Amino acid sequence: MTPAERAAVQAHLRRLFGNNRIAVTAPERKGGSVELKVGDEFIGTVHRDAEDGEVSYAIQIIVLSDDLEMPN
């Protein structure tokens, strides 16, 4: 994903969720996944898909069971 694409996805998500702390960041290593963060918290990955001349972006959000507050 190009820097321009990451910036466009980030801007869209910030507008959509009304949260300027959302960041779409480049992978640390070549070929790694683009990361989706809120502040310093990693929440998932962003994947680019180009098929039949159309480009889309899929977001996979990770929720760890340890982070959940389960009712008794």
Score class of each variant (00 low, 15 high):
residue 3 P to I: 09
residue 59 I to D: 02
residue 48 R to S: 11
residue 62 I to H: 11
residue 20 N to W: 02
residue 41 E to L: 09
residue 52 D to H: 14
residue 14 R to H: 01
residue 31 G to D: 01
residue 10 Q to W: 06
residue 59 I to L: 13
residue 58 A to C: 03
residue 39 G to C: 08
residue 38 V to R: 06
residue 65 S to F: 12
residue 18 G to C: 01
residue 38 V to W: 00
residue 72 N to F: 15
residue 45 T to Y: 09
residue 29 R to D: 10
residue 50 A to C: 13
residue 25 T to D: 02
residue 40 D to E: 13
residue 38 V to A: 06
residue 28 E to M: 12
residue 55 V to D: 06
residue 26 A to Y: 00
residue 1 M to G: 04
residue 50 A to F: 06
residue 26 A to W: 04
residue 50 A to Y: 11
residue 13 L to N: 05
residue 4 A to P: 00
residue 63 V to R: 09
residue 39 G to N: 04
residue 62 I to E: 02
residue 32 G to E: 11
residue 39 G to I: 10
residue 45 T to N: 15
residue 66 D to P: 12
residue 11 A to C: 03
residue 1 M to Q: 01
residue 40 D to Q: 09
residue 59 I to F: 10
residue 72 N to C: 02
residue 59 I to C: 07
residue 19 N to K: 12
residue 58 A to P: 00
residue 55 V to Y: 04
residue 66 D to M: 08
residue 68 L to P: 10
residue 38 V to P: 15
residue 40 D to C: 05
residue 16 L to T: 15
residue 71 P to D: 04
residue 28 E to W: 03
residue 71 P to N: 03
residue 31 G to A: 04
residue 45 T to M: 09
residue 63 V to M: 02
residue 43 I to N: 09
residue 60 Q to C: 08
residue 14 R to L: 05
residue 32 G to F: 07
residue 1 M to F: 06
residue 3 P to A: 14
residue 32 G to P: 06
residue 34 V to E: 00
residue 9 V to P: 10
residue 49 D to N: 15
residue 48 R to M: 09
residue 71 P to K: 07
residue 10 Q to G: 01
residue 52 D to V: 07
residue 70 M to G: 01
residue 29 R to T: 14
residue 70 M to D: 00
residue 60 Q to P: 01
residue 57 Y to Q: 02
residue 7 A to T: 14
residue 68 L to R: 11
residue 61 I to E: 10
residue 69 E to I: 08
residue 40 D to M: 01
residue 46 V to L: 07
residue 65 S to A: 15
